[in-house]
Computed example of a mutant assay.
Amino acid sequence: MSGRRWMMAAAALVAVLQIGFLASMITGRAAVLRDGREVVLAVEPVDPRDLLRGDYVTLSYNISRVPAALFPEPPAQEGDEGRRTVFVRLKPDENGVFQPVAARYDAKPEGAPAPDEVDIRGSTRSRWTADPYSISIRYGIERFYVPEGEGRAIESNLAERTFRMKVAVGEDGAAQIKSFHDGETMLYAEPLY
């Protein structure tokens, strides 16, 4: 009988740990959406023939390729093609769209960001290349889920009109999609939970 109680207690403990892990993931995402700094990014088409895959659209942004000149120095191991963490400092232009102004491997750019700037964290698998090349960076916001059947309209209009994405950026640089806009019209908003 005591063996059965022990098994029940162990099963309950495992269930509580699993629920706690899932809850921490959800609350972490919600914290960035609720408290993160809001930035606006220009959406760029990746490939007009391959944007829609099921119920999501693959996107690229104006910050997806960062000029190599914004990095103060190459990574410590030249030619290293492993995944590297990259921090990119963004600043809004005259249209309110955030643009890269500095970048650095493995740590935030030196100096504190100005009040209108924000540091976003991404990763790259690109090899370091000399000027005038750029570094491709992924921020974890390249896939946007849309209601079933509505992706085709976005796909057909993406190259023709101005789309923007509002993104929340946490203190640690983590980014979460907040809302998707066609010009000034909000098409979709991500729920907090």
Rank of each mutant, 00 (worst) to 15 (best):
G3D: 15
G3Y: 15
M8H: 15
A9T: 10
A11C: 07
A12L: 02
A12M: 07
A12H: 09
V14A: 11
V14Q: 00
A15L: 04
Q18S: 13
I19H: 11
F21C: 09
A23G: 10
S24V: 13
I26W: 13
T27N: 04
A31D: 11
L33E: 12
L33T: 01
D35Y: 01
D35N: 08
R37S: 11
R37W: 10
E38S: 14
L41V: 10
V43A: 06
P45C: 11
D47G: 00
D47L: 02
D50M: 15
D50I: 14
D50T: 13
L51P: 15
G54K: 01
D55C: 10
T58V: 15
T58Y: 02
L59Y: 00
I63L: 00
S64G: 03
A68R: 09
L70A: 08
F71A: 07
P74A: 01
P75Y: 10
P75Q: 06
E78Y: 12
E78C: 13
D80T: 03
E81K: 15
E81V: 15
R84Q: 04
R84G: 05
K91D: 00
P92Q: 02
P92E: 09
E94W: 05
G96E: 03
F98M: 04
F98L: 06
V101A: 13
A102G: 01
A103G: 06
A103T: 05
R104K: 06
D106H: 14
A107W: 08
A107S: 05
A107G: 06
K108W: 03
P109E: 01
E110L: 12
E110M: 08
A112E: 06
P113A: 04
P113R: 03
P115R: 00
V118C: 06
V118T: 05
D119S: 05
D119W: 00
G122D: 07
R125L: 15
R125N: 14
T129N: 13
D131A: 14
D131L: 15
P132N: 09
S134C: 02
S134E: 08
I135L: 03
R138N: 11
R138K: 10
G140M: 00
G140E: 04
I141M: 05
I141E: 01
F144V: 03
F144T: 09
Y145C: 07
E148I: 14
E150D: 12
E150K: 11
E150I: 07
G151K: 11
A153R: 01
E155F: 01
S156N: 14
N157L: 13
N157C: 12
L158G: 07
L158W: 03
A159H: 02
A159L: 04
E160H: 12
R161N: 11
T162I: 06
F163Y: 09
M165G: 07
K166C: 07
K166E: 00
G170Q: 09
A174K: 15
A174Y: 13
Q176K: 03
Q176I: 04
Q176G: 00
Q176V: 05
S179A: 08
S179M: 03
F180V: 08
F180R: 07
G183C: 08
T185M: 02
M186E: 09
M186I: 05
L187T: 04
E190A: 15
L192A: 09
L192I: 10
